[in-house]
Nucleic acid binder design. Structure first.
Lengths: 332, 332
DNA sequence: TTGTATGCGTTATCAC
DNA sequence: GTGATAACGCATACAA
């Protein structure tokens, strides 16, 4: 492996000059500079990033710690993070925590040990301990779920989205909208439920119909089943996430209910399939890519030191996308 | 930032003893060892991974260079890689090349400079130059698309999958199956087309019907349109990727054709939506997660030096998943 | 502008 | 079993 000294010898200069040249310092004689560059090219020199990082006491690595990159919501966040990171010369370490506090803290430790320049974290259910990170002075941005610690964050106005979706269901003529949300310890589940409740309460004379379940397909299936088995079942459903929505769809079809006629449907998350099911599914779209991009931006500012001392909290809005599943057609 | 010397002083031992203790060397007096561990905990010591990497001349970082993590096929590969990497104590650097030779070579250089322990690469269309990597002795595994260089690889028997799918269409009673495949310079597109062609030729007396398009939704739309506008249009379609399949579905519906009755459909890739469209879509499932997991496994073996000198080539099989879209129902 | 020399925080080699 | 010390490859303070 050729190192800086080899290049220096080849070019007949000192290592300092090689270093300066390759790091684009202006104070190098153009003549020498080109001799250095030629020598480096001739020898196929590749600077050792590890040594450089050690000396500079800084890396150009970002850690992205999320539940699961296979969840389309996080996939989009990941893409957003990676795009702005790359544009600023940073690379991203991908960490799937699977909502497992153990894996999460392992990754947090890895991030700290590898001296990453910053961390973007979607904390698990029960809150996460980023105390070590903060003590170590590692810039951090929280996404999707809040943390009590005073750090930068990027969130989505879930509650407002749920509320708008519920209002829409009612406006469309559905009389008994219900909500299928996530587990109690999931903040986003709570937010979405509250959005639903506030809409229903405001309309008055409407029953509050809701159930919880895991944020997975099966959670949707069983949630729908429980609601539909009730003596006075709902006639429309707001589902808190796309994976659950697939389960709901399954259950609804199993019962022979016609979406848009017998039952109205709307779900959180613009998954790739939503506009291709029959009928197309209305959604509360979350700006997932932007969450990632903005979080990365915040982080870069923080790393560059060009951020205010106090933490900044970004709140992105959802977008209501109305398709056929939530429009009420008269039964034939 | 507390360093190893601080811990040594706190524990009243030498840095060597601290290092040995924290790296789990057995040859340390248990008494001293616990004193060291206590001191480290008391001080909140975090080993500096960068310094360690420099000294050891090795990192526990893997670079994963793929076209786009947002493509479900690559998402699954990514998850597979990350899982086995983590289980072996490695982290993964996520790199989206977007099929752009420029981005790809940038990432290749980053990987080399950061002295990653290994690289998993899905080369872009026109072939990729991993010469530098090989010269630098960086273990590399190629996935999804071949490269002439003699390195480890994990591929899918695309051709056989396409052939099985075409055979299935014919067996199901479709008389004029066609193929919508990707661009000429995409190896997988070629393989899938050839699989289709071999099936059709073997059956004899059948027209070879096929078109190419970009591996995107729009490619499916326009491909389907061109085929269906022909004087003698096909009655069934084999589509080379899931994103194209969405486009095909769109076009087919636009024309009022009933899937499974007027036209048979089957596509490559088990995307999350395939079983939820109406009617459920038959697919040629690729073992994407396994591709990633196996590639990572191969790479780890190579890194550990426990791999044979000659490159190993894994070939994973596809799985035909027959759903309603490719079964032929009599028109009502 | 250029060169020399020091140190970044570890691990590992060598004596003891 | 333990400790002193020399690398690892680079960036930079300082001297020239």
């Amino acid at each position: 492996m050729v190192k800086i000294g080899d290049v220096a010898r080849e070019a007949g200069v000192s290592v300092a000059t090689v270093s300066r040249t390759l790091n684009g310092q202006s104070s190098v004689d153009p003549q020498l500079a080109s001799r250095v560059r030629e020598a480096a090219a001739r020898l196929g020199y590749r600077p050792n990033g590890v040594a450089r990082n050690l000396r500079r006491k800084a890396t150009d690595l970002l850690a992205l710690i999320i539940a699961d990159v296979a969840n389309p919501f996080f996939t989009a966040i990941t893409r957003g993070v990676e795009d702005v990171a790359r544009s600023r010369g940073f690379s991203v370490l991908l960490c799937n925590s699977d909502e497992d506090p153990g894996k999460e803290s392992t990754y947090l430790r890895v991030a700290e040990q590898q001296r990453v320049a910053g961390v973007i974290l979607s904390p698990h259910r029960d809150g996460s301990d980023i105390g070590d990170l903060r003590r170590a002075g590692v810039p951090t941005v929280i996404v999707d779920r809040p943390l009590t610690e005073p750090v930068d964050s990027v969130m989505v106005r879930s509650r407002e989205g749920a509320r708008a979706a519920t209002d829409h269901l009612i406006d469309a003529g559905w009389r008994r909208p219900a909500c299928i949300t996530g587990p109690e310890d999931a903040w986003t589940a709570q937010e979405r439920l509250e959005g639903y409740l506030s809409a229903v309460r405001e309309h008055g004379e409407m029953d509050e119909l809701w159930v919880r379940g895991p944020f997975r397909q099966q959670g949707g299936t069983s949630g729908a089943a429980r609601l539909l088995d009730a003596p006075k079942p709902p006639d429309a459903l707001l589902v808190a996430n796309a994976q659950m929505a697939l389960g709901v769809l399954e259950e609804v079809r199993r019962r022979g209910l016609r979406v848009g006629i017998d039952i109205g449907l709307i779900t959180f998350d613009e998954a790739p399939w939503t506009s291709f099911v029959e009928p197309p599914m209305s959604v509360v779209a979350q700006p997932a890519y932007d969450i990632g991009a903005q979080a990365a931006q915040l982080l870069m500012d923080r790393i560059a030191g060009s951020a205010p001392a106090e933490p900044r909290h970004l709140q992105l809005s959802t977008m209501l996308v109305v398709r056929a599943s939530s429009r009420r057609q008269a039964p034939r």
